[in-house]
Design a binder for these strands. Structure first.
Lengths: 107, 107
DNA sequence: ACTATACATCGATATATGTCTATATCTGAT
DNA sequence: ATCAGATATAGACATATATCGATGTATAGT
């Protein structure tokens, strides 16, 4: 409560609104399966990767992978486009830039 | 299951072991309160900030802040040193090198 | 030794999350 | 219209997490 010494914090602390938005992105990256999933997607580049090729390498059920892809999609980290019966996922570097910007501002 | 097109993924996917380690760091940053907490700590620079000054601005109970600081500490994002009855927290930016290295490895 | 302050831990509780099986939906082909 | 394959959703369950009040521990001062 009482301040032992006066610490001059710089202006512009992280506002709650921004913290919540950032936390959501980090949250999407806070699961090992999701991280590997995202890694596979971004490695596929602009062409993207078919969802059907993501289930096997991660050793999870199809609904589980679908769930994780949804989380990544809602966080804005990946986007999907339909091609017939399958769906192609690709990384969205814009949102990723938010993360790297923040991280580089720290270190 | 069946591959609709052959996608040439680059070598070196994210291994499970590394994914788990990375996910732990992201997990520590996946909570708004913890993000703002970390922000306050890192803004204090090398001198650090007293734990007693972190409870009020975040509008959480003292045990809750203590818990979050523990999470940040165990993730290697902050370190603490005792000074009498107070404990001073400061950021450890080295950990971010791991994250930024990974993030820049593909793109 | 006693008291006051700072911080940590404990136990409880409500909510969120990861995972599965079962089922639904969507798309293309017959 | 029917069928098969790909993906999404629903429901269930176990575990994790964020939070609090109560209590414990450590340190400094009297």
């Amino acid at each position: 409560m009482t301040t032992p010494k006066i610490i001059a914090l710089r202006k512009g602390p992280l506002l709650e609104k921004n913290a919540t938005a950032l936390a959501a992105i980090f949250g999407a990256l806070s699961d090992p399966v999701r991280l590997r999933l995202f890694d596979l997607v971004r490695r596929a580049g602009a062409a993207g990767v078919c969802s059907c090729d993501l289930t096997e390498p991660l050793d999870r059920s199809q609904p589980t992978i679908s769930h994780h892809l949804k989380v990544l999609r809602e966080a804005g980290l990946v986007e999907s486009r339909r091609d017939g019966t399958w769906i192609w996922y690709s990384a969205t570097p814009e949102v990723f830039a938010v993360v790297t910007n923040y991280l580089s501002s720290v270190s």
